Amino acid sequence: MTRLAFSRAPQVGRLDALSLAAILVTIVFWASAFAGIRAGLEAFSPGHLTLYRFLVASAALGLYAILARIPLPSPADLGRIFVLSLSGITAYHVLLNVGQQTVPSGTASLIVAAGPVFTALLATRFAGERLNALGWLGTLISLGGVALIVLGRGQDLGFTRGALLILGAAVCTSLYFVFQRSLLRRMNSLHFTVWSLLLGTLPMLVFLPGFGAELASAPTGAHLAVIYLGLFPSVLGYLTWTFAISRVGASATTSFLYVSPVFAVLIGWLWLGEVPGRMALIGGLIAIAGVLLVNTRGRPAA
């Protein structure tokens, strides 16, 4: 994509063909990440998997930043980007990877699909957006669907713990999407994404102990899975997503995440042979229905 394409859009809120294409590219790559994480976890611990993935992403983005001479943000903006990235990059991916140790990839995607509801709630509180009665009803429906997924395996505490961690990851990424918007009003979205992923990688260095041993013992397939995660769902996925948010807005953009589980379940089946259980699918459908209600009928007319 050209430098011009990633500049700030003059008409925020307009879902044009370019913004829609960027969203769809992100959705497909992010959906594939759930299966990629499960494949990576066969050889790497959650912390090492997170570190490896974002070292790959940071190497690619760091090289690009040097070649393109991307300017360093002001110290104040760097601090804001670091705090946001600590939530939306570091915490999100660590929680997701730990959670997916016990939660299948398709089920994890169904839980993360509740993220747009958290985004809508945060945007209502902090970004001046409003929900009507149907919006609040959709919120309750979606959270009820997630609860059904989390509790769907009865006394399986490992699954429940993992599902709750993934739900926490969805909250972290919602915070990231909502509060990055103020920075995107004055920053090029490409520049924001580069610095965000680089700064979000720094706290992951706490996982360095033992990393070399896992690198040496991991099979080729695991390495390829993590490199794919670093280059496509991370670098390309975050670039196109931030670009879309800068043009359309966080709430409208994240409403498309309800499509992600469809791709994630299909990819998990083809790649890993995983199929979510009946309770997870029912809960996921309920959660997605709530998201649809929030994002189609849940806001007062302008």
Rank of each mutant, 00 (worst) to 15 (best):
F6R: 10
G13V: 08
G13R: 11
L18C: 10
S19A: 15
A22C: 13
I23L: 13
T26L: 01
V28F: 00
W30L: 02
A33R: 00
A35V: 02
A43C: 07
S45V: 08
S45T: 15
G47W: 12
F54S: 12
V56C: 13
A65W: 00
A65P: 05
P71V: 07
P75K: 12
S87A: 15
S87Y: 12
T90G: 04
A91V: 06
A91M: 14
Y92W: 05
V94K: 06
L95Y: 00
N97D: 09
G99S: 08
V103P: 01
T107H: 00
I111D: 06
V112N: 07
G115S: 15
P116I: 07
T119A: 06
F126M: 03
A127R: 14
L131E: 01
L134M: 13
G138M: 08
G138A: 07
T139I: 02
I141P: 01
L151A: 15
G152L: 03
G162F: 08
A163S: 15
L164N: 05
G168I: 11
S174P: 10
M187D: 05
T193Q: 02
L197H: 09
L202F: 11
P203Y: 10
M204E: 13
V206L: 10
V206Q: 12
L208F: 12
P209H: 08
P209Y: 06
L215Y: 08
G221A: 15
A222W: 04
H223A: 09
Y228A: 07
L229H: 09
G237T: 00
G237N: 03
L239H: 09
W241N: 13
W241T: 07
T242P: 02
A244L: 02
S251T: 15
T254A: 08
Y258E: 01
A264C: 04
G268Y: 02
W269V: 01
L270S: 11
G277D: 15
G284H: 04
L285K: 08
L285N: 05
P300N: 09
A302M: 03
